[in-house]
Computed example of a mutant assay.
Amino acid sequence: MGDNGSYVVFAASLAGVVSGCAFVWLTPLLPQLKSENSEVPMTEAELSWVVSIIEIGDIFTPVPSALLADRLGRKPVLLASGPFQLAAWLIILLSRSVAGLCIARFIQGLAMGIMYAVLPIYLAEIASPAVRGSVGIFVQYSWYFGLIFEYSIGPFLTYSQIIWASMPLTIVSISEITMRFLV
């Protein structure tokens, strides 16, 4: 890796952080969502669908993403997960319905599948053999950082506040600065 290698690994790993955040942001809010004063009233069955539908979205994108990464390149396909995540956060912010949340969580799953298929390949390709293992672990580190971020702030925030706290990570991951390092 060149002089900017650390920045490239960090910038690319933001996709993992964003996916980790998307995966668990609802979990700290479960007590609020189950309450009578919930911002999105739903039954237990609806809540279970909203929480788990992200995994259904995750099923559809890994294979096409890997094929597209071979054809178009790893960087553009990895960067493509960002707009999916941003669209999902905007739907979550603007929608206060179970259907809207299900659609958004499905989209977050699509983006998560792209990240998990392409980020490990990209990081392995940019790393020299001497540091490839160390760099490869950033996929999991970034994922866990996203989880820890949400679990750390989530219990103290409302539905809207957690969205506003999580969305900027997605914006940074698709920002000009990040794209400059990756492209």
Rank of each mutant, 00 (worst) to 15 (best):
T27H: 04
F60D: 01
Q108W: 10
S38H: 00
L67Y: 09
Y7F: 12
D58V: 13
E125P: 02
G133W: 02
L14S: 01
A88S: 14
I148W: 12
T43G: 11
V131F: 02
S81C: 09
I162M: 14
Y141H: 08
V17C: 03
G113K: 06
G73K: 07
I137Q: 13
L67R: 03
V98P: 12
Q161D: 15
I53N: 05
D3G: 13
Q85H: 15
L33K: 03
T158R: 07
I91E: 06
G154A: 11
A104N: 01
P28W: 00
F149C: 08
I121T: 11
I54Q: 08
M115E: 11
A124M: 12
L94S: 13
P155Q: 07
L86M: 11
A165E: 06
P155T: 08
G5T: 08
G109E: 10
I54R: 08
G57D: 04
L169Y: 08
S52R: 04
L47H: 05
G16Y: 00
I153M: 13
P64A: 10
L14F: 02
S52V: 05
S160E: 14
F156L: 13
A88Y: 04
A87V: 15
P76A: 11
E176M: 13
E39S: 15
V9A: 02
L93A: 15
E46T: 05
G109F: 07
V139G: 03
L79S: 09
N4Y: 12
S160P: 05
V9K: 00
D3P: 13
I163N: 05
L47E: 09
L47P: 03
W49A: 05
L68I: 12
K75C: 04
L119W: 01
F23C: 10
M115G: 00
V135E: 03
G109T: 08
E39C: 04
I54C: 12
V17G: 01
V8Q: 14
E55I: 04
F145G: 09
A88H: 07
P41H: 12
F10E: 00
N4G: 14
E176C: 13
E44V: 14
